[in-house]
Design a protein around this nucleic acid. Structure first.
Lengths: 238, 238
DNA sequence: CGTCTAGTTGAATTCCGTCAAAGCGGGTGG
DNA sequence: CCACCCGCTTTGACGGAATTCAACTAGACG
């Protein structure tokens, strides 16, 4: 089955939920059609890899739905998550030989993918696209550097509080059960929270328990968090 | 005194030592002249700030000589260095409202600076420049993410060993006393090494002492390091 | 020669990691 | 429908690595 015909995908693009937030925003209809002709939608199930660390960089894309993690392994087999990728975020390494980190779906996900060399060529000829990509990359670099402060200078409590606030912010309306409550669904399990924050699963668990006992959050289920006392949570985040 | 006349700077650019490594490489003579007309050279003494964290982003530039650090402070007054900037590296935050971290000269330095809005406008009209900047930003993002693995998952010994190897690599010929020895000059003091690695000055000092005692490095002076046993140092870095 | 800053070293403490065991919950098969 | 199982999470006890606090030392500079 081949979905890469311009016709089919042009329609997909029109209906695309991230159409005006992703890097393809601002392209004119003709450019969109052209971009369509080189890309295709790909569905990932939770746990499926899109990119493997160290592989040749063959794919780039845009996340349409779901969440992915970017991660890098250490020599002793542990892992550090170096980025979380949300809908409308760009993924992959254009203009480079190898992918310096793996990308794995955390939830079922939908990604609009391109062969890197097709994308590179297209980008070179469409400065507006490159400009969007540049802005996005600069923003991502800022975010990554803020994260470095977290990894380098914060204790376990500050790290977890910060992450919960970030989830609450970035998942926003999309994954929140409804707009009235302060409850949201965690996109990742305890082990991966640990891998994001540079801690162990036991430390995460203990910090959750402490926050629960202190009445700052409630944990209706393993994958849900309710913020009971936002000001305190913010102060814990430092 | 005004150095911003096209004439003067056009000549400066021709003689620029980083001319073919920085983002201005690949521009044609006409573009260079134009770029000159909006930029100027600025000399910094060690310790001088080029950008303040949180300030409005007014400046961007290229480092010509010397080294700078990018850093972000924590609420309790400690600091995390989020990037080291070497000659030919780009510095500052184009297309953004505020500078998310401070930039301070570690050594006396020479920087080719532009008003951000002038640079933004120029970049928008010169896709080749934006492309260079994009490549550079992508590379910087990769480097930053590798650093996250270091901050999140390595112990003090691995962190310091990794940093020494990076210095040895990146300072290369430029700051190395001479090409035959394994000695190089540290661009930063103990406190700032600690701020790079997310550790304290005491821990850095102890790790240096351990490596010295183990015969892996020698420390001819506070600011010099000699690598005596590179294979072991590499294995310490993990 | 004294002062000042940067770095080193030591002792006590704290936080987090490690190891181990038990608890929970969702799914499957009897 | 229930019992069992498996993976994930929680909790506890302990040890170790890094921080903290504090005293001391080495150079640099007047």
């Amino acid at each position: 089955m081949n979905f890469s015909g311009p016709q089919f995908l042009a329609e997909t693009c029109q209906a695309c939920t991230i159409r005006n937030r992703a890097i393809c925003a601002d392209l004119d209809p003709q450019e969109i059609t052209l971009l369509n002709s080189i890309g295709r939608q790909r569905e990932l199930v939770a746990g499926e890899h899109l990119l493997w660390e160290g592989d040749e960089a063959v794919l780039v894309g845009n996340v349409v739905e779901g969440m992915l993690k970017l991660s890098s392994g250490t020599s002793d087999g542990r892992e550090q998550i170096v980025g979380l990728v949300y809908p409308s975020d760009f993924i992959g390494r254009p203009f480079g030989a190898t992918t310096p980190y793996g990308a794995e779906a955390l939830t079922d996900a939908k990604v609009c993918v391109f062969q890197r060399k097709d994308f590179d060529a297209f980008a070179q000829e469409h400065p507006r696209l490159e400009h969007k990509l540049l802005e996005r990359t600069l923003t991502e670099l800022d975010r990554t550097r803020r994260w470095m402060v977290l990894l380098g200078r914060m204790d376990a409590e500050q790290k977890l509080a910060s992450l919960l606030l970030e989830f609450d912010d970035r998942l926003g309306a999309s994954l929140r059960a409804n707009t009235e409550t302060e409850t949201f669904e965690l996109p990742i399990g305890r082990q991966q929270i640990a891998d994001v924050l540079g801690l162990t699963i036991e430390t995460i668990s203990r910090q959750f328990s402490r926050m629960k006992k202190a009445g700052v959050v409630a944990l209706p289920s393993r994958r849900e968090v309710t913020i009971l006392d936002r000001p305190t949570l913010k102060s814990l985040a430092g």
